[in-house]
């Protein structure tokens, strides 16, 4: 199964399709996404803004999982790190949003590199548990220091008087901010694509197969592992900054440990081996609960449904939903080179 992933882990949906065909699906998805504001619903605009944001997070998780075989159960906590820095800088300096977003991303990339330190020595469940412990620590820490809301001092938190964070100059309204998030998500995809189709991608592929042989082939295993974590952390940090921009403030209670575990689970369910798996993960993570809530299904009943669906998906679809869709798509195209 692992070999399979390496072979088909690229962005192709179908190998014998023409060059144009591989861009077809992304372009369709992008057009659909950009037409969402035209629906004219404030609720679904908010929901899809969250979906766009968590797509970036899931992209970072699936990168680690697919390329390095590493599991992070701390990505929602990492989003919190990025969001904290973005908010802090915004309230302190009022620089353009992009600077703050980037700074939040870079800071989280550094945190990601710190998480990579244990990853140099362990993998699998142990590493996952280290990240889980980090997420657990973060959820308590942030409950104490809180997110900056325009107060004084280093933490920038005051019990009263929330000052709302400024949004990007180009995206003041909810509609514009949604488009802004989609654009950042596209850039995030481009960043990951560029990495996977260049030297780091080849190095990661070899490392995933065997670290010893990667090292024998002259690859700096430590560097590329750390780089993978930094990139993944960067994406989470950007997502956190966007979340802060979406709500214009953050609340410590948005970052419990369970959320970090859940988004990893959904990334696996969505399908880490295909490029659109991250989108499916984010849809499951934010759109599905919102749909159930809107249909009047109680949050508790939604839990039951969600948990059952999670177990079912993990038990029956080893390549995730994206894998099933890709398999179906390739069958429909009557391609000789079938994916499963």
């Amino acid at each position: 199964m692992k070999n399979y992933g390496e072979k088909y882990g690229h962005f192709e949906m179908n190998q014998i399709s023409g060059q144009w065909r591989r861009w077809l699906a992304p372009i369709i998805i992008l057009i659909v996404a950009l037409s969402i504001p035209a629906m004219g619903s404030a609720l679904w605009l908010k929901v899809f803004t969250s979906v766009a944001i968590y797509t970036i997070t899931a992209l970072g998780i699936s990168l680690l999982y697919r390329r390095l075989g590493q599991v992070s159960l701390a990505h929602v906590a990492l989003m919190g790190c990025g969001g904290w820095v973005t908010l802090r800088l915004s309230h302190a300096f009022h620089l353009p949003f992009e600077f703050q977003l980037f700074a939040g991303g870079v800071f989280t990339a550094i945190v990601g590199m710190v998480l990579a330190y244990p990853a140099l020595r362990m993998r699998g469940l142990y590493l996952a548990l280290v990240t889980l412990m980090a997420a657990g620590g973060f959820s308590i820490l942030i409950g104490i220091i809180q997110f900056p809301n325009g107060g004084d001092g280093f933490a920038g938190y005051a019990i009263t008087a929330i000052t709302h964070m400024e949004r990007p100059y180009l995206a003041q309204s909810d509609e514009a901010f949604f488009v802004y998030c989609i654009m950042i998500a596209v850039l995030a995809y481009a960043l990951v694509y560029a990495h996977e189709h260049a030297k780091p991608g080849r190095a990661w592929a070899l490392i995933r197969r065997s670290e010893a042989s990667a090292m024998a082939a002259g690859i700096n295993v430590t560097f590329y592992k750390v780089w993978g974590f930094a990139l993944s952390g960067f994406l989470a940090g950007i997502a956190g900054g966007l979340l802060a921009g979406s709500l214009q403030f953050l609340d410590a209670r948005s970052f419990p440990v369970g959320e970090s575990v859940m988004i990893f689970a959904l990334t696996v369910v969505g399908g880490a081996w295909h490029w659109f798996g991250a989108i499916i993960a984010a849809l499951l993570f934010r759109l599905m609960p919102a749909l159930l809530n809107d249909w009047g299904v109680s949050g508790d009943a939604a839990f039951i449904f969600f948990g059952a669906a999670l177990m079912h998906a993990l038990a029956t679809a080893p390549k995730g939903i994206a894998g099933q869709i890709a398999g179906l798509a390739s069958r429909l195209m009557k391609s000789g080179d079938r994916h499963d």
Binding site: V47, D174, S254, P289
Partner: peptide, 20 residues
């Protein structure tokens, strides 16, 4: 509407009620 103690959901349902 149920905000599920979640700030994101609170923003969603707030927008739904006020705008939609």
């Amino acid at each position: 509407e149920d905000d599920q103690w979640n700030p994101e959901v609170a923003a969603q349902v707030g927008n739904k009620l006020v705008k939609d």
